[in-house]
Computed example of a mutant assay.
Amino acid sequence: MNPPAAVNRTPGPHHSRAVARAAGTEADARRRVTELLRAAGAALDSTAAGDALLVASELVTNAIRAGRRAAVARRRSR
């Protein structure tokens, strides 16, 4: 069995622009989850709906922060 191929995790040349465009995506994620909850007939004032909105927001926020750290680290290494 062959070992798994190496994954290149180095940000590409367009990475910093993608991070800059991410502003507001937390709100976009919450809005999309709200749409999905409504479509599923979930009560938007339920604990589960609140938890789903919080998780979506946290995941997007963490992804944006991680992307920014990678972009800063890349600029510093030049």
Rank of each mutant, 00 (worst) to 15 (best):
L44D: 04
A29E: 02
A40E: 02
G67F: 00
L36F: 03
S57Y: 10
P13A: 13
S57C: 12
H15G: 01
A63P: 01
A6C: 06
A39S: 13
G12H: 03
R38E: 12
L54K: 12
A20G: 08
P11T: 10
V60W: 02
T10I: 14
G67A: 03
S16F: 04
R21Y: 07
G12S: 08
R68C: 06
L44M: 12
A63Q: 00
R65H: 11
A73H: 03
T61G: 08
A49H: 08
T47R: 11
S46C: 05
L37Y: 04
A52C: 10
H15D: 04
A52Y: 14
P3C: 12
L59V: 12
L54C: 07
A20F: 06
L59N: 12
V72A: 03
A39G: 08
H14T: 06
L36C: 10
A20M: 04
S16N: 02
D45T: 12
G12C: 12
A5R: 13
A5E: 15
A18C: 00
H14M: 13
A5I: 14
A71S: 07
A66Q: 14
A42Q: 02
N2C: 09
R9I: 15
R68E: 13
A49D: 10
L37M: 08
T34V: 09
A20V: 09
A42I: 01
A23F: 01
A48Y: 11
V19W: 03
A39L: 13
E26W: 00
A27G: 05
A43T: 11
D28E: 14
D51I: 05
A48M: 06
R75H: 11
P11R: 07
G24W: 07
A18G: 01
S16E: 06
R78V: 01
E26L: 03
L36K: 06
A42V: 13
A22R: 04
R76A: 11
M1L: 10
H14C: 05
R17Y: 12
A73L: 08
A5F: 08
L37K: 03
G12I: 11
V19T: 07
G41C: 02
D51E: 15
A5Q: 15
L36D: 08
T25P: 00
T34L: 11
A43M: 06
R76K: 08
A27Q: 06
R65W: 08
R68A: 11
A5L: 14
A42Y: 02
L54G: 09
A56I: 14
A66W: 05
L53F: 03
R65M: 06
V33F: 02
P3R: 14
A39D: 10
A6R: 15
V7R: 13
E58I: 09
R32G: 04
V33G: 00
T47V: 06
P3S: 15
P4C: 08
S77W: 02
D51A: 14
G24D: 07
T34M: 08
R76F: 09
E35L: 10
D51R: 13
R75D: 11
A63E: 00
L59G: 10
P13Y: 02
